[in-house]
Design a protein around this nucleic acid. Structure first.
Length: 805
RNA sequence: GCGGAUGUGGCGGAAUGGCAGACGCAUCAGACUCAAAAUCUGACGGUGGCAACAUCGUGUGGGUUCAAGUCCCACCAUCCGCACCA
């Protein structure tokens, strides 16, 4: 009889052996077929590993281990996204240098990951806070700057009152800080910006060539928010001036009954002396200015606005005079900050017009029939036909748009225009623990990049990391660091004191893994050419419009700069669901439902944790933790362990088991590829139950089983392999192939139905002719078969259905 | 409001249009044990029946089909994004 399964001894032993063997290092042999599997590197927080981390890590560990056994040179790396606020806050609170905090946290994380038996190539570990790493983050920034894609701009930013830091639009969720949940207010600051908007089209088009789950593609497209329309100039009456608007419905120009400008629109100040109700306008503007964009949207239920008394506009297509209003439903940050209002065919305009009693003119009719526009705006583009619109009358919306644009362009009063919801990326953070921005400001030369040879621009030691209320980075107090000379003219200059956001280091880390110790370049051309693109990248849905979009932007830029060989960084993107607490709620300290993976590894073992997290349910859906479920997986591994007692010396698969073995190999192989780990494990559970039923396992059946289970539970399978004295180690084995022909049973049990309802089952030969099967079925049905047979259906190897009246 | 996803036993979840509920958990019964735990064996959607069996059953209502959890139409509920984007 075998000894008991002692996971503590077994797991420690094999982790040591893999380390000693350097078993999972990617090789430099660029002639072998490669496979690059990637999971998002973690932020090494003080809390240590969360039970949610192992889900994606195990999933791709399974893929990586399987690919190695299939002969690929596999790169499955891990690193640390270690800059960031929590570390800095912890450092401030406990008066330890963030560097130290990071070091300790990384050590803890690494130990935890190690205890889970992942096949990461630790020789390629990267850390975004390492100067040898952020040297290249800064280098990329300089490239962006030199390409004109990084610029500094005075602008209202999202300011988190608690973190005391500016946030990117993507980091503001429901009007509060994505990280700490505190209120976000507007604050005008001079900020570094990255022109991600220049890449909007490329980021949309790049999605066509990659294999991302659909919802990621959809979200990114929506976030970029491209729309095709036209810009049209309306002249201001009695002024030599124009008011430019953006519209996606230039076909409705004849239906314009008024215009609306945003409260921040410059035309207001320009003509303030002629605006009779200036006081009223100023009051409205102040009221609107107090609200954040979010609040404006929140309070959108009721439209507000003020008519400008003293200014009016002329509709360029029919020269009609129309009033101009000010309202905060028009945003300065989108389009031109001014709109033409067509209340008959736009819901917002309709609402506004109803409230302020403005006229409606119907210019689009449903299939040519006028509709009732007093009860609702008519916005259906598909069935719309133009009316009351002069030269575009009778045209469908699509054609009317085209003709109108042509007209506008000929007359020089408008042109086709594409717009985006995407804003440029606010890249400055008023914090210490981030990459210094390698720019100096010279009184004479303006913003000047420091020389590449000066990189890395090291983060200096400071006395206090405390963020300041005045919105300046703690670095600003370091006068001897701040004051420098201009690389251009040699005169006095000041260093930029803001640092980069956390998203900087994570926007290119996957490139560094390909060649992490390179001191000449971010990675060698050969390494990049061989390893890129990442074949499979798994990460959280929450990064869809942040990290994933940012890194695609940087990568595409680096492609344009001829630094990287592919347009897109990731060939395939999948996403995992969250692991919730036992009560179905999100795990959190305050809810008291947090599970610590260390406890599970200690009590049940890493293999059990890995198996459980893969068995818990569909990979892309969230799943609730269940301690009983963990026990069930441990029980399964116990049964695997005891299998060694019934293994024989017999080679090959036993005759009656051949089909089952091939079916299982097929099922497991395919399921691992399509993230269906739960059904793969179920198949392994099923076959082990069958092993016990026949009460013996041949050597080859056992070996095959161990190899199939190995990616999920690597330690126990290696140990059993060694205990049996089989040659080599499991991770060095070749992944078993299945023979399609042998997955098919020669005799099958099929259902016999009458009118679609199963009555009996019969065993038939797979190749039996229809007549024989029907005859057999009728015989089995016996007396149940009474009445007129209308139709006899036989789907080979599947089902018999007798249709009766 | 727009977009996306989900809806199947007591629970987590399986099902290329072809025997709904694989696999696991929980529960119950039996074996082993002085006893318990562990382990092993068996039962396990509802209703009726001692039973063979019958009948209903995959969010709701229609439809297509010999056959629908699966396909089509219309709804409902929950979750997640986005949200005055002209």
């Amino acid at each position: 009889m075998s000894e008991n399964y002692n996971h503590k001894v077994v797991e420690k032993k094999w982790q040591q052996i893999w380390d000693d063997d350097n078993a999972f290092a990617a090789t430099q042999d660029y002639t072998k077929p490669k496979y690059y599997a990637l999971v998002e590197f973690p932020y090494p927080s003080g809390q240590g590993l969360h039970v949610g981390h192992p889900r994606p890590y195990t999933a791709l560990d399974i893929v990586a281990r399987k690919r190695r056994m299939q002969g690929y040179n596999v790169l499955y790396p891990m690193g640390w996204d270690a800059f960031g606020l929590p570390t800095e806050n912890y450092a401030i609170k406990n008066k330890i240098h963030p560097k130290e905090v990071t070091k300790n946290n990384v050590a803890r994380f690494k130990e935890q990951l190690h205890s889970l038996g992942y096949s990461f190539d630790w020789d390629r570990e990267v850390n975004t806070t390492d100067p040898e790493y952020y040297k290249w983050t800064q280098w990329i920034f300089l490239k962006l700057f030199k390409a004109g894609l990084a610029y500094k701009k005075e602008m209202p930013i999202n300011w988190c009152t608690s973190c005391k830091v500016g946030l990117a639009n993507e980091e503001v969720v429901n009007g509060v800080c994505e990280r700490c949940g505190s209120q976000v207010v507007r604050k005008v600051k001079s900020e570094w910006m990255l022109k991600i908007t220049d890449y909007a089209d490329k980021l949309i088009e790049g999605l066509d060539g990659v294999d991302y789950i659909e919802r990621v593609k959809v979200s990114q497209k929506n976030w970029i928010g491209r729309s095709y329309g036209a810009e049209v100039d309306f002249s201001v009456k009695d002024k030599d001036d124009k008011l430019r608007i953006y519209t996606t419905r230039c076909d409705t120009l004849f239906g314009v009954t008024y215009m609306v400008v945003s409260p921040e629109h410059p035309i207001l100040d320009k003509y303030k002396d002629e605006i009779k109700n200036w006081n009223e306008i100023v009051a409205y503007r102040e009221e609107a200015g107090k609200k954040s964009d979010f609040e404006r949207a929140e309070l959108a239920k009721e439209k507000t606005g003020v008519q400008i008394d003293g200014l009016s506009a002329i509709n360029p297509v029919n020269n009609k005079e129309i009033p101009i209003w000010v309202s905060d439903y028009v945003l300065m940050s989108y389009g031109t900050g001014a709109i033409m209002a067509v209340p008959a065919h736009d819901e917002r305009d309709w609402e506004f017009a109803k409230k302020f009693n403005l006229p409606l003119i119907q210019v689009v009719a449903k299939d040519g029939e006028e509709v009732d526009i007093d009860s609702a705006a008519f916005t259906d583009v598909a069935t719309g036909v133009l009316i009351n619109s002069d030269f575009i009358n009778g045209l469908e919306v699509k054609d009317a748009k085209e003709k109108m644009i042509k007209f506008l362009e000929e007359k020089g009063i408008g042109c086709a225009k594409t717009n985006y919801k995407l804003r440029d990326w606010v890249f400055s953070r008023q914090r210490y623990w981030g990459e210094p921005i390698p720019i100096v400001e010279c009184e004479k030369c303006g913003f000047v990049p420091i020389d590449e040879s000066e990189l890395p621009l090291m983060l200096p030691e400071v006395d206090s990391y405390m963020p300041t209320d005045n919105g300046e980075s703690p670095l600003a107090a370091m006068t001897d660091w701040v004051n420098t000379t201009c690389p251009c003219c040699g005169g006095p200059a000041k260093r930029e004191t803001d640092t980069m956001p956390q998203w900087a280091g994570s926007s290119w880390y996957f490139l560094r893994y390909t060649d992490p110790h390179n001191t000449e370049a971010l990675a060698s051309k050969e390494a990049l050419k061989y390893w890129l693109p990442v074949d499979w990248y798994n990460g959280g849905m929450e990064h869809t419009t942040l990290h994933l979009l940012y890194s695609r932007f940087w990568h595409r830029f680096l492609f344009d700069q001829d630094v990287v060989p592919t347009k897109e960084p990731y060939q395939k993107r999948t996403s995992h669901g969250m692991i919730l607490g036992e009560n179905g709620e999100k795990m959190s300290k305050s809810r008291g439902n947090v599970v610590n993976p260390d406890d599970i590894v200690r009590d049940y073992g890493a293999d059990t944790l890995r198996t459980y997290e893969m068995f818990i349910g569909a990979f892309d859906l969230s799943a609730s933790w269940s301690e009983n479920g963990v026990k069930g997986c441990r029980r399964f591994l116990e049964r695997v362990w005891k299998l060694q007692d019934i293994v024989t010396d017999e080679k090959g698969f036993s005759k009656d088991f051949e089909t089952k073995m091939h079916q299982t190999i097929k099922k497991v192989s395919l399921d691992f590829e399509s993230l269906k780990f739960n059904t793969a494990i179920a198949a392994l559970m099923t076959i082990i139950n069958d092993f016990y039923k026949k009460n013996s396992v041949t050597e080859d059946e056992f070996k095959t089983f161990l190899i199939l289970l190995n990616p999920v539970a690597p330690h126990i399978t290696e140990e059993l392999w060694a205990l049996k004295g089989y040659e080599g180690k499991v991770y060095q084995c070749t992944w078993p192939e299945y023979d399609e022909a042998k997955t098919v049973e020669s005799t099958v049990e099929i259902a016999v139905q009458i009118n679609g309802k199963t009555k009996v089952t019969i065993a038939i030969g797979k190749e039996d002719p229809k007549d024989d099967v029907i005859a057999k079925a009728k015989e089995a049905l016996g007396s149940k078969l009474s009445g007129n047979v209308v139709k006899e259906i036989y789907v080979p190897g599947r089902i018999v259905n007798i249709v009766m009246k």
